[in-house]
Design a protein around this nucleic acid. Sequence first.
DNA 1: TCACCACATGAAAGCGCTTCCTACGCCCTC
DNA 2: GAGGGCGTAGGAAGCGCTTTCATGTGGTGA
Lengths: 340, 340
Amino acid sequence: MKALPTPSGHELGTVTIYDVAARAGVGIATVSRALNGSAPVAEATRARVLAAVEELGFRPSHAGTSLAARTHAANGIVFPDLSGPYYAEVLLGYEESASRLGRSVLVLATHGRPDPAAAVRDLAGRVDGIVLLGRTVPDHVIEELSAFGLPVVVVARPEVDGVDSIRADGLDAARALGEHLAGHGLRKIAFLGSPEESPDVAERWRGVREGLGAHGIEPTVTPCLFDEESGTRVAAGLLAVRERPDALVCANDEIALGAIVAAEEIGLRVGRDIAITGWDDVMAARHARPALTTVRQPMRTLGALAAEVLDERITKERTTPRHESLATDLVVRDSCGLHP
Amino acid sequence: MKALPTPSGHELGTVTIYDVAARAGVGIATVSRALNGSAPVAEATRARVLAAVEELGFRPSHAGTSLAARTHAANGIVFPDLSGPYYAEVLLGYEESASRLGRSVLVLATHGRPDPAAAVRDLAGRVDGIVLLGRTVPDHVIEELSAFGLPVVVVARPEVDGVDSIRADGLDAARALGEHLAGHGLRKIAFLGSPEESPDVAERWRGVREGLGAHGIEPTVTPCLFDEESGTRVAAGLLAVRERPDALVCANDEIALGAIVAAEEIGLRVGRDIAITGWDDVMAARHARPALTTVRQPMRTLGALAAEVLDERITKERTTPRHESLATDLVVRDSCGLHP
DNA sequence: TCACCACATGAAAGCGCTTCCTACGCCCTC
DNA sequence: GAGGGCGTAGGAAGCGCTTTCATGTGGTGA
């Protein structure tokens, strides 16, 4: 491909379908058909059109196309925020998948925004479909968008009536984690996280409880925000009492990494004096010493699948809701104790 | 705001400026003016228009607007890929800043794509300006876009004629790092990274060399890709020889984390028997044991600044290129030796 | 009282594309 | 040889908006 065709006599970036039509000696309808294959065009004509396109460096205007065709060839994706490795991976999978399906990706981070719902509505006007991650907007906004006729997929978020959803199933892995800890002989287990604030955390809590329950162990639960500093603070509180827990099961890796700091601060050897586990398997988890026992989620796959499920709706291949659940894996490392 | 105005009689999502005009008893031009403030409208009229907008739930079509106004109200951002914490932070800062300026953000990851240049050209047709990160496309494509009249900002990439650029200056921090290592009494220093492949790495290498040179130390350099596995492999090779280096200065954190693995594998105590340093200060750096000495880059600021610089060009506030350089900070932790 | 002007508004012309509808050949068939 | 069908292509009507240009209104100064 030549770098930049710039035949003199016309402004750059101003080549329209009319210029191409004139050059090829055909009507604009024929140019459109030749380019999109929306109707048969004689081979010789097509060749002339394509030659003209090449010579003039014609690139169809997206605005014109989307106005006429009532489509945007673009998907939206909405994040609570983008910090942390979790969402970046989802976005990567999504972008890759979407672009393979010929769609651009518009991102929106709602974190710290005055009116997330308005931002999402605005985004909705520029795309053919939208993926919502986590608790970014209230249910009624999602229902509104969906009722509006806009395909919506929610990821890692409670299901909404009639809306596709994708999630990572944590129940099995949580049960396995509970069983594993019991196998280490640990008995006083504290769960750090807020089950009532998030269905995901609730699921993890439930699984851990079931896994431990099978061994007659009843864990406790302590509310905790999803960040390192909270992990340190909450863990410090739990470890300060005389009858301290011998295992801290944290709702995500950041809490766990914070908890490790708290444990070391009072001289506990993680993996020996106390077991600590996380959730997500972020990069820092395998580099922490001791390396963090955690649960790996298929984040990139989550994003890729979201793009595909959304595409089915946009192209009307499917009209009934789809609810996908991806398996997660327990990753046993050293922070929960020496391997049995 | 009401959830979803659905007066019967018209399709959802089909409310156009004509409907609003009819409802308010005015012409569409007046509606446009009332909404955009592009020309004075009598107060009473404006109120009627706004009421009609509210009642009908009118949301202007972006396609129509961008076609007529020849603007997209959107920015693009192009990544090599999105894995790793580095780019996600940049994106976060960019999105935040762009949306505050009233622009949506389209993302494109070129990694693993058959024709990155074509993808970038396509993106260029949907936005008012574009930010390019790292080595995503060759120079001539950037020049082409810029010549096309599209505002372009390059980030963390060599400057291109007439194009705005933003970077993090690593020279000072690298010098400081070199000096610091010399202060630890370290003498045999190996740099892991490929200076000839990336100007950033070249800058780090140069700074380290200068910092050490001030103490009469001449470091060696060994090429290394930017990932953990390469770090482990290259470090293992360096440490296997009899006269092994007593410090490994790595071009980024991932290499350093990989190098730590290699060192521990042969029984070396990092921070005592050998010093290892990274670059970027990813989350894993502070959780590694020993914690990694590294250099922190202002990634979020990088992204935010990119959005602002781009906006100046789009709004024509500025027509001369701007080249920004942000300072980076040496973060001394334990992996380079006990603090002096 | 009349001409003039600012102000507010509407009609209409695009912006660049898709697509419906019509028209033109041409070949085949009766 | 006339009628019908098919393959191809063009004209023109939108898609929903912004903006120019023209018009109408009321107020001002002479």
